[in-house]
Amino acid sequence: MFKILEARELTTNIFQMIVEAPRVASACLPGQFLIIRVHEDGERIPLTICDYDREKGTVEIVVQAIGAETQKLSKLKAGDSLADVVGPLGQASDLVYEDIEELKKKKIVFIAGGVGTAPVYPQAKWLKEHGVDCDVIIGAKNKDLVILEDRFKEVCNLHITTDDGSYGRSGMVTVALQDLWNEGNKYDHCVAIGPMIMMKFVCKLTKELGIPTVVSMNPIMVDGTGMCGACRLTVGGEVKFACVDGPEFDGHKVDFDQAMNRMKLYKTEEGRLLLKAQEGDTHHGGCGNCE
């Protein structure tokens, strides 16, 4: 069992937790992820690592409650435990293996969308700790949904944009990126993490602008160690497993349309199970899938 030390709601439906997981905390690097199970018989949920403390042996996760299992997770409090926390999984970000002096010469921009803001944080923090500056663009639907703002301010040059213009710049992240570029920010390297649709359009723009771009993919996964192949993607015409080859890939080579399509796979089935659980014995089969 893995004890939850802190738990709070950051904003509507987005939760932050600090969990005891010494092995993960001692080994993880920016870019990697972990898998949890909320309870015995629960699903394996891949989650990004928002921060880690090697000395305390803790990891911080940020999760949006969207499915049946993440909703159960969101109800847990400090003092409760998770059945499983396994990781770190996947490859660390390429940035951590690069020459620091070379990195310092580069103008780096991170683009974070929604709950994808969380995994950007350890990367920006890691760069700060190594004396490398970076820009971060956080995109959210509206002011209330912007997360981790104060912590980002300490580690980067932060730009915020909201779809409805209620805070910071107005419009999508792609608009903000184009504007910053036009304002004279000639970026050499871009890392985009967020919904697949956002990453797709960021990549479209950065390709036009000629900025090499890394994206972090979060497809459907089961074991997360390369065993099942559920997370396979087409990258540059080759089949890659997000869990062992990724999760970060060259964004200009990822087949996003195919990846987005594959995400739909279990939507109906998971929704069906959720409905059934909520309605209990009164479930009437109106979903068309049940008897």
């Binding site: 099942c228 192949g229 594959r262």
Partner: peptide, 19 residues
Amino acid sequence: LPRFMNIPGEQAMGVFSAN
């Protein structure tokens, strides 16, 4: 790691590895 055949259509929804 499971092997696939590398034939067209293998990324369609409804194609799984036995694993």
